[in-house]
Design a protein around this nucleic acid. Structure first.
Lengths: 209, 209
DNA sequence: GACAGGAACGAACGGTCGTACTATTCTGCG
DNA sequence: CGCAGAATAGTACGACCGTTCGTTCCTGTC
């Protein structure tokens, strides 16, 4: 009696190693792409056997999809979530941008943004991976759109601003930041990105009273 | 005697098939990445045996590098070269931008810009491929910088314009255009990109008489 | 102590990879 | 024609791929 009730030991021992595997998977995918996620190399990285790792996912595809999910979760956790502490409007948009351009470093992903990598890899082909990537991307895109709309509603951005233009502009600047980091270094790339973002916002700012 | 001098038959029959192989390679790389360039699949695509194709390059790495070169050559041919017919300054910058966002389609590369793909794949790793990609990228970057500088020298862009800002902005917009094409379609993506480019230029335009 | 179930293991499979050899066919020049 | 050399094909190899299978270890319950 005395029913164990909850238990289930929040870390079921298997869940724990699964989480470790996925962390390693995202790290590798950020640098080498999701197509590089092979059972063998990942097993070696996680310090376990191929079959042992394999049992956690059932197939390579499931592993890749799980890695995409994990990457999106980390993005949400490191970019959007902390920005919620900032007040709605431009302040929050600023926070999102700043977290965005810095999140690969914060997540210890020296290979760059894994979602960006996934998009590049699968956007132009069919299959379940493309579906998974697009779904996650649309979700995050919607969240960004809401944040922009708030800045319009608050009167900080001009009322006739097209929210899509701002989202497109932010997306563009962040992409260019990630891409130029490898050429000119993190610091100069982020500096240029911030300057471009400032210009973008100033361009659409509501006229001051 | 009578030294054969030149000869070498401009198309040495081998050169011709080599060119066909590289065309197929660039096409495949644009959609599946340069890491997907395997001897076997490429041989099948070119309608010849693995060993026959292999003999043209000597190693897979050489093949990949040759594909990067070919992609850069096509870029030069379809983006910069036609823009040279436009007069120096904003007109030429406009032409470059327009050719840029449309060149994958023009080159029959439904998978997107292969140089973008190569950059994403190799920017964060070492090795000869990274070197090759970065070199080509820097070359094209320098060419873009010169075109921007001409627009400043001609007085169409403000004298205090930072050429790097314009180049960064154009790069950003084109990247976002390529990335959003897969979500919202080619037409809307290019439309947004053109709008953003107009804003960028207008922002740095020299004050009118 | 017996037992059940999850977690990880090692070995093996069919297949594809890049690459090295040899053999065959094609092509142009005397 | 004949023949040299380039171009392509054939074959074989070791390594790695994803996956399957049977086994072992660990943990918690009767």
């Amino acid at each position: 009696m005395s029913p164990p009730a909850i238990v289930k030991s929040s870390t079921a021992k298997g869940e724990e190693t699964r989480a470790q595997i996925l962390a390693a998977a995202v790290e590798q995918a950020s640098a080498w792409g999701f197509e590089s996620l092979t059972i063998g190399t990942l097993a070696e990285k996680a310090g376990m056997s191929k079959s042992g790792l394999f049992a956690h996912f059932g197939s390579r595809l499931e592993l890749q999809i799980a890695a995409v999910d994990e990457a999106a979760r980390q993005f949400q956790e490191l970019v959007f979530l902390p920005a919620m502490k900032a007040p709605r409007g431009l302040k929050r948009l600023d926070a999102i941008f700043e977290n965005w351009i810095g999140w690969p470093r914060k997540a210890n992903l020296p290979g760059g943004c894994p979602l960006d990598a996934a998009n590049k890899e699968y956007a132009h082909r069919g299959g379940p991976m493309r579906d998974a990537v697009l779904e996650r991307h649309r979700m995050l895109s919607r969240e960004l759109g809401k944040a922009v709309q708030m800045a319009i509603d608050s009167g900080e951005l001009a009322a006739d601003t097209d929210p899509g233009d701002i989202a497109f502009g932010m997306f563009a600047i962040v992409l260019a930041c990630f891409h130029t980091e490898s050429f000119i270094g993190t610091e100069p790339a982020q500096s240029r990105a911030r300057k471009a973002f400032d210009t973008l916002i100033r361009n659409h700012a509501a006229a001051r009273g």
